[in-house]
Design a protein around this nucleic acid. Structure first.
Lengths: 213, 213
DNA sequence: GTCTATAGATTGATAGAC
DNA sequence: GTCTATCAATCTATAGAC
């Protein structure tokens, strides 16, 4: 087994377990057993449990954020070219759609998306800040784009509405994983809609909320 | 120190630590030290760590949910009396406002509200289900009331929009605690608005999202 | 009811042979 | 790079004196 293989196997196993059991609920032994590698391999390749979770975040969040930034840039440039404002829905879609579609991008990505959804509410402050630092550039770009989309909205109100939107989105990402719960209603509810359907429902909700009177 | 005192002190300390450090991130030692009681007192009074967190939830969630159910009932009865539909905003307000106002109801309630916000995303399935089971009656009542408010909306779409709303609300509750993060923007943002202001912003957002075209 | 003392299991991390 | 063996710390829970 090559070094590359071992590192990847650890990252894959850690990603799944952190998403399903949480960071503090996952032991290094659980990870190495699931990855079928030796216990000492984690500390050899990643240094510590804390640096391992950083590596788990960076592996997928870096390309995902690049995708989001690219799409946001496209929306802004298209608006400039036609001399108008970037449509609110397009700006939000540039942030949301790549995330939901990422689920189908590669194997194991479903786990990662759940992990992302949970990260905003992560109790461990150090871990939460690791995530937020990686997200900061995208968040700032989204904020500035939306400023152009809705120049009449005060920065404070925009900020809070964006927080509400992030909450709605994060909750949706978690749910996609496994969060069985309130769905046993006396009505027909689809607990796992197609990515495109879910994406549209979420976008419509958030878009209307952002543009509320 | 009376028995009542000891139990309450443990509940108070546990509430704060669970909210700030998470369930798995909080040890019984941390709780008993913070509460200034003996380590063995937790197991004597509550049986185990798992039953302790259940007691923490129940102590405040039972009266809070009763408040929410009462307000939902009022909204429905008022609609019946005038022979109309319960207004969407009133139904949502019956669920949201008591929660946000609960922060100021008693000391320590701020911690509890953060704990609630985080519970939907709790990785520990048993813990999450404890919370969901306590919330189920209120959730069902809210769902049925909103069914009356918006009879044109399919149950499936209503369900998902309600999930988005819960996500937005949960994120807001967490934030209220301490979640410093993305707020250092090049604009003036109020990181801790008055309860009423925040409540109005959240309600307007969710209400518009629920009634999206 | 409260305390001390400790059992028994699990944790993250490392030293050293191969 | 991979393995075994183990350390030192921490955890929940309990037994038994007072």
């Amino acid at each position: 087994m090559s070094q590359q293989d071992t590192k990847e196997r650890i990252l894959d196993a850690a990603e799944g377990l952190f998403a399903r059991e949480g960071f503090h609920g996952t032991s290094l032994r659980a990870i190495t057993t699931s990855a079928a590698v030796n216990l000492a391999a984690v500390n050899y390749h990643f240094g510590s449990k804390d640096t391992l979770i950083e590596a788990v975040f960076e592996r997928r969040l870096t390309p995902l954020n690049q995708l989001r930034l690219q799409r946001l840039e496209d929306v802004k440039q298209h608006a400039e070219r036609i001399g108008g404002k970037p449509p609110t829905r397009d700006a939000l879609a540039a942030f949301i759609e790549p995330t939901l579609q990422f689920r189908n991008a590669c194997s194991g990505a479903e786990d990662f998306v759940v992990l992302v959804g949970r990260s905003l509410h992560e109790p461990d402050a150090a871990l939460r800040n690791t995530f937020l630092q990686l997200m900061r550039p995208v968040f700032l770009c989204l904020f500035e784009t939306l400023r152009q989309s809705m120049p009449g909205l005060s920065p404070n109100l925009l900020f809070w509405r964006l927080q509400f939107a992030l909450g709605a989105m994060g909750h949706t990402l978690c749910w996609e994983g496994q969060m069985q719960s309130l769905s046993d209603l006396p009505h027909s509810v689809d607990p796992a809609p197609k990515t495109e359907t879910l994406s549209d429902m979420l976008l419509s909700f958030i878009c209307s909320g952002m543009e509320a009177p």
